[in-house]
Amino acid sequence: MQYIIEAEGLKKTFDDFVAVDSISFQVRNGECFGILGPNGAGKTSTVRMIYGFSPLTGGKLKVFGLDITKGFRTIKSRVGVCQQENNLDPDLSVLQNLEVYARYFDISHKKAHRKAKELLKFMALEHREKDKVNELSGGMMRRLVFARALINDPDLLILDEPTTGLDPQSRHQVWERMEELRSMGLSILLTTHYMDEASRLCDRLIIMDHGRILVLDKPNELIREHIGNNIIEVDEPTNELRTYLQSERLAYEDMGHRLIIYSEESSNLFQYISDTYCNEGCILRMATLEDVFLKLTGRDLRE
């Protein structure tokens, strides 16, 4: 099986609001596939259809080659989901959270207990197994949700904003675990707001906005194609600089107090600009996925 997820004309509407607008994409077996987009872009609506939480409004969706409407039970038993909110069970201890969750997958108690212990160790939570969930820190809770998503040895791991609100240490730990799982051949579907997370982890990704897919490619390809290699940022730019850029037909973005200049050939240009036009700060840096994201989805605030 080449594709683990095949979406064709996938659509989700809530009353009049179109959350996902007939999108098509495929996720390959063994890859880490990212879904990026601003708030309200349709990321969560998309993944919720994939793990069988939301019914489709339209289109076709196959997971593991099975039609989601018919094979939902099989699909759900082979998928691990880390939902956006921490919906751990506060009535249960850390260890029980995993054991009780395992029961939903019809995993025997003996096997569940062994697996739960193993996962707590994997997520560095073994010293907290008897504690109540509410006694854990935010980062620990998130790691426990992550561990819970692995209780059924899934063939596909779905992570909906797994590191939102985490401190840098916890984020890096989650990333390392994800890399470990990916190297073991697990397919991962990831939604995120963090571009560094996506560039580091995703083999391929889509950027969504208003329910549509804007682009689909490898992170580096997207940067190369839409931005170039480097970026020159100029603080408090002068009108002379603007005139110069226009006359040279150089692509740039004007934010009033700051100019962002996209350029292929950079060091000479940077030298020239900083010598000639810079009063305040003027820097040359590598282009990132964030530049692509902002260029494609705009800088307006969402919600």
Partner: peptide
């Protein structure tokens, strides 16, 4: 409050 049902809905139930 606990979103327990949401969590269970991500399993085969």
């Amino acid at each position: 409050y606990q979103k327990t049902f949401d969590a269970i809905l991500a399993t085969p139930l």
